[in-house]
Amino acid sequence: MDEKGFDILILGAGPAGVSAALTAHARGRSAAVISADPMASPLARAGRIENYPGLPGRSGRELLAAMVGDLERLDIPLIVGRATAVMAFNGRIMVSVEQDVYQAGALILAAGAQQNARPLPGEERLLGRGVSYCATCDGMLYRGKRVAVLGLGSGSEADRAFLEGIGCQVLYFTGTQAKNAEIQGQDKVSGIAVDGAVHPVEGVFVLRDTVAASALLPGLEMAEGHIAVGPDMATSVPGAFAAGDCTGRPYQIARAVGQGNIAALAADRYLKERET
């Protein structure tokens, strides 16, 4: 198994994830951050941020770039890709990113509010029955077939090209067309309805920047559409912590940074307890 091992894996390179990575690093922990293109964060669209202390009037892009710069400065690996599955086994947590597997003693979920995106009609019911979150994982099973790609995040062009390259006939939808699509089928996917027209397809690749937290990590408790956490940012899954917008409102940088810090300290404590 080509595993890459760390003490702490962090999903998300926004304020919460970077804050957690900095704290983990300061505690002497090896950490890596897994994220879609950091500039695909909704924060990149914020024009001016006036309530983050010490850095008045910066744009979201400027802050994000500075945060990613922090990772570079400290040699904290930034793995750009989509995490598609998480599994705890033998006291370690494994995360698959496309075709690679990473593993760590603790995990911090910090992939933003999008991690709690509402599923499309038919998505959950037909998951594994034609609905897939990973083109590189399942694409080969659809060679020579007609599939739809719903590009709901960044980087889905590459998935489209991959699927076309292996011989799929790809219908590609983005933006509001993708957001309002309806996946159809009884026991398996039979088609996709977009703008009132039904297109027969055998597979639908639903590609968000991040897979919904509850689908990524089975058994993860949610509360009102957000990941349920205790005061130390621990989730219902041992060794898994969460920070930032994925844990609830307000969706503010200051809150995310604070929670990232708390989560990393708690993850460090969790690892320490297991080491003794």
């Binding site: 198994m1 599955a85 599994m87 075709q99 690679d100 597997v101 590189t136 994982c137 399942d138």
Partner: peptide, 17 residues
């Protein structure tokens, strides 16, 4: 399973165990 599938690489040691 298949070699190009990341999650399969995670499944494998569990199945072995």
């Amino acid at each position: 399973w298949a070699v190009w599938c990341g999650p399969c690489k995670m499944q494998s040691p569990i199945v072995d165990a």
